[in-house]
Design a protein around this nucleic acid. Structure first.
Lengths: 344, 344
DNA sequence: TTGAAAGCGCTAACAG
DNA sequence: CTGTTAGCGCTTTCAA
């Protein structure tokens, strides 16, 4: 803690006076200097330097109606389910892109349903120019709020409902979950496996259902007994694996919808005396740092570029902000890549 | 993306007209309504409701010189080293506290040394009322920037240098690392272990040196051969453990300065045929989710209230903001607790 | 208790 | 190319 009321900083007025020009000219120079004669530009620049002038953000926002800030809205529960690395990598990507465009990141953590009032007020309050939001569930109030407040918003992850007729589809960025799942299953097939099981994620998350769809794309006639549902946690993966093993002790491969579930499945496989990959080949999804490479054996998995997705979200939003909604593609799907390790 | 230029929202002027009062009275009501007669208060409230009025933040900031926002500054590299859960829990605590006080959280990720210019400009720009910063290294430019810009700042983690004479000590919040280490080592002692080793963290982090100090508090005459240094990663923990085992194959207990290193050590212990806890008892630090309970055996470790520390940081800052620096205690150290599991 | 008026610091027409 | 002028929407003396 230092000064309580920061010594009042020099204003544009002061800079103008110091440089011997009008406030308007000083303003022009500060904002790029277009259309101002070089000698004057120099004088003003020197004045800015000398006086240590920094533009007052509030005053600028008041007249331009641009805040230079973007809200990142994260539902609290997600932060857990989605496991932290995911969250922080995405944030990093967003932060990089925003910083490169001189835009600030305001973090809004949503604790519970009651919090949406606060979020709505915040968005309506003109604190930010746009918003980035994540992993919408079917009944998520956010899109309605965004629409009502007219706040340009880009979503992370494919929304769980179809676009209403006549409504502009919401722009989102997502990994190619379905394609990635196909890569995983095809790999297992190429290994000569014939009884491939799938541990799916929760039905209310599109990333989970998309992966399940990818599984069925490659194995259209898969025995329903070979599919189990987990909750994207290691524990749930272990339980799903146990059920699978009970029903189909003859299975020779497993594609788990994420690495956490794969790690749980791996533990159970070993407990049941199965060797991985000899008896049962195992593929995960996410290439989650600290999990995928550190299991024994390390997981073959599907990698998605999480940071890149974050960057892309920010880029779409910024483009929409500067060029209008029409410049924003409805959605962008990023590629996934199979990472071969020892488990399959 | 919806509207490009948000439909201009109603102003105080509009509310005042609608309610049939002056702008001044409307303003008073919006800000609590002190000193306004009830009937008028009601009228204005109704007008606000009817019109859907939300105060313009920029205009308010311009006159009050308060932004209602706080910057959270996180050095990029730390985000990795410190492992993500730490980061996100701390953020959560901060967010909770700020939200409760209607204050916004602006996230500033620092990518590299060059970024400090940007940070300095940002803090000088009057975008925020205060700042929260983390894990300072000895040569960190942040404190100087904070001082220069007169930005009230609270730090997370004990700074790595002594307060310069005549300077106000920086306020910080930290876990009782030293006390926690003592708890860990005493526990090992109580178990009857006599050759207790320590895998310390990097010398330039006070959390590491404090834990090392705690170790020495309880074991003042410890053989230097029983202390090794790691980098707070699982890999470095494994390497340190290997060196320790080579030098002192007779060791019967290990206190690792964090859970990640403990997990690496555990792996190496097993590879060398040591049973844990029978042959070698092992204690970690952090009670890191997803690590401590999921190793085999689960780790006995020292828990710190990370979210609570975050909350505390925010609370100190907010208090300083409203009551002046004098109201902020120099620093607060939070308690740690030994969590007994199977490894010791 | 209420209202009138000044002004926070800046940008953006508009004239010159 | 530069300066003058009018606000942006709000809070806050100061008078009434």
């Amino acid at each position: 803690m230092t000064v309580q009321h920061p010594a009042s900083r020099p204003t544009l007025e002061a800079v103008a006076a110091y440089a011997g020009v009008s406030r308007a000219t000083a303003s022009r120079v500060v904002n790029g200097g277009a259309g101002v004669r070089p000698p004057l530009v120099d004088k003003v620049r020197r004045a800015v330097e000398e006086l240590g002038y920094v533009p007052n953000h509030a005053a600028r926002t008041l007249v331009t109606r641009r805040t230079g800030a973007v809200a990142v809205i994260i539902p609290e529960p997600e932060i857990r389910i989605f496991s932290d690395p995911f969250f922080s990598q995405q944030i990093r990507g967003i932060s990089r892109e925003l910083t490169a465009h001189d835009t600030q990141l305001v973090l809004l953590l949503v604790e519970g349903p009651g919090d949406y009032d606060r979020i709505a007020r915040y968005l309506a309050g003109g604190h930010v120019d746009g918003a980035l939001a994540f992993s919408l569930h079917t009944d998520d109030p956010l899109p309605a709020i965004a629409r009502r407040t007219g706040m340009p918003t880009v979503y992370g992850g494919r929304p769980g409902w179809p676009t209403a007729p006549g409504e502009r589809p919401v722009p989102y960025v997502d990994a190619d979950n379905r394609g990635g799942a196909r890569q995983a299953v095809r790999h297992l097939l190429a290994l000569g496996r014939t009884r491939i099981a799938h541990i799916a994620g929760p039905r209310d998350q599109t990333s989970a259902t998309d992966r399940l769809d990818g599984f069925h794309d490659v194995l259209p006639g898969a025995d329903p007994e070979l599919v189990e549902e987990g909750a994207f946690t290691a524990e749930s993966g272990a339980r799903a694996m146990a059920r699978l093993l009970e029903r189909r002790p003859d299975l020779d491969a497993v594609f788990a919808a994420n690495d956490l579930m794969a790690s749980g499945a791996l533990r159970v496989l070993r407990q049941h005396g199965r060797r991985v990959p000899e008896d049962v080949a195992l593929v995960g999804f996410d290439d989650m740092r600290g999990v995928a490479e550190s299991t024994d054996p390390p997981l073959t998995t599907v990698r998605q570029d999480i940071e890149g997705m974050g960057r892309l979200m920010a880029r779409l939003l910024l483009r929409g902000l500067s060029e209008g909604p029409a410049a924003v593609p409805t959605s962008v799907v990023t590629e996934t890549a199979l990472v071969r390790r020892a488990s399959a």
